[in-house]
Design a protein around this nucleic acid. Structure first.
Length: 201
DNA sequence: CCACCGATTGCT
DNA sequence: GCAATCGGTGGT
C-alpha cells in the first residue's frame, strides 16, 4: 500500500473491492451503454464530512430532446443545461420539493443523455441495513443537493469508481418508474441487478 | 407575476 | 391511496 498506485481498496466488510475513478471516456458513450455499465460501479463521497460508498444496482436512462420523459425534453433550460454539457458531470434535481435525485451526464457532445441513479447497496459509511433503494433515499444518504449539479465526477470528492461488471444474466430491464406509459413502454430503460436489496419496489 | 405539478417516499 | 414541499416552467 504505500506508494501512489493504490487503485484497489480493500473493503472492511465483504471482499468487495473497487478501483480508480471512471475516466471521461466511460461517460462519453451512448447513454444506454453508460447506464448498463454503471451497474456494479461504486458511488463514493470522500470529503471532510466523511466517507461513504455504495454499489449501484438500479439506474434509468434518459436520452435526447425527443424523449418526453427526460428533463432535456424540448431543449436546455437553466436547470437542465448541464445535461447538454460534458459527460461525467452530475445533474441533481429536487423532486416534489423533498428529494434530491442524482443523474450522471452521459453521451455528449451536444446530445443530452443522463442516467438517473435509483438504487444502491451500502458498502462503507452506512449501516449494512441502510436502505439506499430509490433515487430520493440515495440522494439523502449522500447528502446531495442541487449545489452538486455541475460537479465533475472525474475530479470532485463526489465520484464514481470502477468495479467488476455485472453479468448480463444478472441484469433485468423494464419500463422507467413514474413515467407515463406511452413515453416509456417502448423504452425499457430501467436497468437493475436481479435480486439485489438495493433495488426499489 | 402566479399557478401548476413532478424521473418520490412513507404514512393514513 | 395520498399528503408533504418547492423550484422550474409556461401562461397571463
Amino acid at each position: 500500500m504505500g506508494s501512489g498506485t493504490r487503485s484497489i481498496h480493500a473493503r472492511a466488510s465483504a471482499a468487495f473491492r473497487y478501483g480508480p475513478r471512471l475516466p471521461r471516456s466511460f461517460y462519453t458513450r451512448p447513454t444506454l451503454v453508460v447506464a448498463r455499465e454503471l451497474l456494479g460501479k461504486v458511488l463514493l463521497y470522500d470529503g471532510p464530512e466523511g466517507r461513504r460508498a455504495a454499489r449501484l444496482v438500479e439506474v434509468e436512462a434518459y436520452h435526447g430532446t425527443r424523449d418526453p420523459a427526460s428533463h432535456a425534453f424540448r431543449g436546455p433550460t437553466p436547470r437542465t443545461s448541464v445535461m447538454f454539457g460534458r459527460p461525467g458531470h452530475a445533474y441533481v434535481y429536487l423532486s416534489h420539493g423533498v428529494w434530491f435525485c442524482m443523474n450522471v451526464v452521459a453521451h455528449g457532445p451536444e446530445i443530452a443523455g443522463a442516467v438517473l441513479l435509483r438504487g444502491a447497496e451500502p458498502l462503507e459509511g452506512f449501516a449494512k441495513t441502510a436502505r439506499l433503494s430509490g433515487p430520493g433515499l440515495l440522494g439523502r444518504a449522500f447528502a446531495l443537493s442541487t449545489a452538486h449539479t455541475g460537479v465533475d465526477l472525474t475530479r470532485s470528492s463526489l465520484q464514481l469508481r470502477d468495479a467488476p461488471p455485472v453479468a448480463s444474466r444478472q441484469i433485468a430491464r423494464g419500463p422507467r418508474i413514474g413515467i407515463a406509459e406511452s413515453a416509456t413502454s417502448a423504452k425499457p430503460w430501467r436497468l437493475w441487478v436481479r435480486g439485489s436489496r438495493g433495488v426499489s419496489r
